[in-house]
């Protein structure tokens, strides 16, 4: 694999000493004129058949799933009796897990805000054109994904487990003001976790794309770890339990 994109003109090399040329006569059904031989297929019926097949497949999958598992319906809502645990839907339970470890404004407002801002600005932070349409861009990109993912799993699991065992909030109570325990320390820990791969790539002269790959991987893997922790490892009182030792017969899967 080369680093340069091959010159597109190679399909029909130009001969500069001639002002015209007949290049080739081909029998074909392509409406593309003035371009090299193309590798295209008719949308009708090929793409359409693909889509119909997907439609049938997806519908069948939901059909089977709906036969196998019933949608849950708990007792009627009662504002007087809190359920225990009270969990957000699975796609927000990662945020709920984050709330356990820092000031709610940091976990619930600042971090989600930064993430949405980051997502929206990715194309403007990395405005390279190379390797669009190639998975992980290159072998190097793939290595960055693997290493960053492994690193993030370890770092985030360690952070959650450490804070759960020696609650930073409780340990520092009376020692440091609450804003240190709830804003500065967790904020710094997360900043270091996020920025470490960036600094390493920076020193290795990584491209903007490399850095985006690292940041996005940290984000998505952290979200997965937090979601699994909040969904599977939190039981009554939103306390930590091993999933196979959940008390009171609590089963998070019943609450999907």
């Amino acid at each position: 694999m080369t680093n340069e994109l091959p010159v597109k003109d190679e399909v029909f090399p130009k001969d500069t000493s001639k002002s015209y040329a007949i290049v080739e006569m081909v029998r074909g059904d392509s409406p593309m004129v003035g371009k090299g031989p193309d590798d295209t297929v008719f949308s009708f019926p090929i793409v359409l058949l693909w889509e119909i097949l997907l439609l049938l497949g997806v519908t069948l999958a939901i059909f089977l799933f709906s036969l196998a598992k019933q949608a849950p319906l708990d007792a009627i809502a009662n504002p007087q009796i809190t359920t225990d645990p009270a969990k957000a839907p699975w796609y927000f339970v990662g945020l709920q897990e984050l709330l356990e470890h820092m000031h709610p404004t940091l976990a619930g407002i600042v971090i989600p805000g930064v993430l949405v801002g980051f997502l929206m600005s990715i194309p403007y932070l990395d405005n390279s054109r190379e390797f669009a349409g190639v998975w992980f861009s290159s072998k190097r990109g793939k290595r960055i994904v693997v290493w960053t993912a492994v690193y993030t799993v370890i770092a985030m699991v360690a952070f959650i487990a450490f804070d759960n065992a020696f609650s930073i909030r409780e340990t520092l109570r009376g020692v440091a003001p609450p804003w240190v325990a709830q804003w500065v320390i967790p904020g710094l820990i997360l900043a270091v976790i996020v920025l470490l791969p960036v600094v390493i790539l920076w020193r290795k002269k990584g491209s903007a794309r490399d850095i985006m790959i690292a940041l996005f991987t940290v984000m998505i893997v952290s979200a997965v770890v937090l979601t699994i922790s909040g969904f599977l490892f939190r039981g009554p009182g939103f306390e930590m339990y091993w999933p196979w030792q959940m008390p009171d017969g609590y089963n998070p899967w019943d609450e999907l």
């Binding site: 009270a86 619930g108 407002i109």
Partner: peptide
């Protein structure tokens, strides 16, 4: 919408997060 315990408390927990926005929460 099902208005059961599950949905009521999940929405209560979820919307509580909004109230932590500084000032306008």
């Amino acid at each position: 919408l099902p208005w059961d315990q599950l949905s009521f408390w999940a929405i209560t927990v979820g919307t509580n997060i909004a109230s932590y926005a500084p000032g306008a929460g």
